[in-house]
Design a protein around this nucleic acid. Sequence first.
DNA 1: TTGTAGGCGTTATCAG
DNA 2: CTGATAACGCCTACAA
Lengths: 330, 330
Amino acid sequence: MSPTIKDIALRAGVSYATVSRALNNHPEVSKATREKVLHLAKEMGYRPNAIARGLVTKETRTIGLVLPDITNPFFPEVARGVEEAASESGYSVFLCNTDWSSEREEEHLHALMQKQVDGFIVAPSSDQLTHLLKILDAGCKAVFISGVISHPNSVSIIIDNVRGAQMAVEHLLKKGHRQIGFVGGVQDVATNNERFLGYRKALESWGIGLEWDCIRKGDFRREGGLAVTKELLRLEERPTAIFAANDLTALGVLQAVKEEGLAIPQDVAVVGFDDIQFASLPEIELTTIAQPKFQMGRLAFQKLLQMNKEDGPAKERIILRPKLVVRKTS
Amino acid sequence: MSPTIKDIALRAGVSYATVSRALNNHPEVSKATREKVLHLAKEMGYRPNAIARGLVTKETRTIGLVLPDITNPFFPEVARGVEEAASESGYSVFLCNTDWSSEREEEHLHALMQKQVDGFIVAPSSDQLTHLLKILDAGCKAVFISGVISHPNSVSIIIDNVRGAQMAVEHLLKKGHRQIGFVGGVQDVATNNERFLGYRKALESWGIGLEWDCIRKGDFRREGGLAVTKELLRLEERPTAIFAANDLTALGVLQAVKEEGLAIPQDVAVVGFDDIQFASLPEIELTTIAQPKFQMGRLAFQKLLQMNKEDGPAKERIILRPKLVVRKTS
DNA sequence: TTGTAGGCGTTATCAG
DNA sequence: CTGATAACGCCTACAA
């Protein structure tokens, strides 16, 4: 379809090598021929075949972004960040959804390896990390967003989930709440575990015992938050405040509270985690813990690139500071 | 890193060709050697190099998804659909954001062509279609989501925007509104133009003249809707209802109305377009026009695949039916 | 400054 | 059923 180097060489009356050199701006090529070649290339509509190039250079300028669910508003923002940074550097990014399944995660990783991506950015879908370690051992580079893996071929970019959750719950404690529920996300996911830990620590440091009745697991989606909260609210001693493992869940919580005819924040206060775009809607005004999603995406790509260039192990672990955003639900 | 066919051939004591055949399940290869090869391949951890394969087969099992902004909740759902369908068929998808810029769209298309994608799914960022036609003429296959292009190498999947907008506005008319404002999206985008056309038609068919003062353009985002609506509401004869070109814009409209101290829907009714996930939140309950986003994504991929297989031109144009979802803002 | 030739890892076309 | 061998389009020593 598009002409090849061979075609150009023929028309220009020079060798393959010369054309290739001219095209790649090598210094050892005379002005005259370079211009002739470049001109001809444009005229003939030459488009280098990145596949062929990749085969020889072993660099595809392609990375894989694998995350649980692009439909969760947290992820589009980080995706945006990595995509933007990537395309600025001439990289393209494969998008893969795992639907929180570690099997699908592994399948995607596998497929991407075959496609010879230059690296991975992954938001782990579970605590099942063996397959991730395997690809790192195989020499692949990766940066992990939320989810720590210690391996010289990887860097982790995480928000301090424990600290964030602690801030959230302490905020509620300071408001006078003593009966605070926890509506979690998908089980066995680091994000969820850490946020639970923060919740726990906050309560403990205030000398308040855990009430297991008040602790439930959802699915990181609205539906889960809704269903689980209904149960919580029908307890004998219902919580006066709820900390949700993420904003989507918190939206479900809000809905449940309203559907039970209770007022927010008077009857029950709620705080979420993530600060997704919609948390700030005047109709919602969700109190939450913010993390710099877009920047995390950009940073992730930069780190990946950096690992590939100077292949000394980059700083292994970057911990971002969470920020409490107080709005109207608490 | 990973062994190659050559390596396996050496260890198995057979030729490249035989190994390749065994690996690809060709019939002409004896049970014995097939098993030997397969076993060895597994043992040695063989991973086919898709890049090399692509070079010879001219099929990368890779497609490009280029859309304006993954951060707009309309798009993650369609992205999800295409990604899911794609991975079921062993395809990977490149994600590209154009930020509504036709130049960036062109750049991305260019880059993806070099990467030899098997096809494109694009949600056009403007009415600037020449570069799209160019790639089609160059032999690329593409399916367009919202945005019609007539070309044998493409199929368009669109919702009937005109009809949808008409439904929205007629709904408002039936509710008794006569002063209906339009808050648009990015200019020169088919989606926006068509929705405006529907607005116009509805009014005309009810014998109501257009008031240009009531017609404003936004940016398909909340911010735009907010700013523009503030102006609208300060008009001498402010509209009693507003049709927004998409839901994100509608959210901005809602906010503006509230900030001006007016009640919804009593003082001003509003209806949007898209039915994004958040339109159904109890706090929002936005009346809107729904489109089957996820299914559009899946369908888009299926059509693309189909065009590639049987390369007779597929049905060129698929028009989906919009659906009015009445909630509490009208 | 330019040309020759070999190789990147696969698949595919021939003969045997 | 199996083996050479030639592509695919590009890059890069090495030699001239």
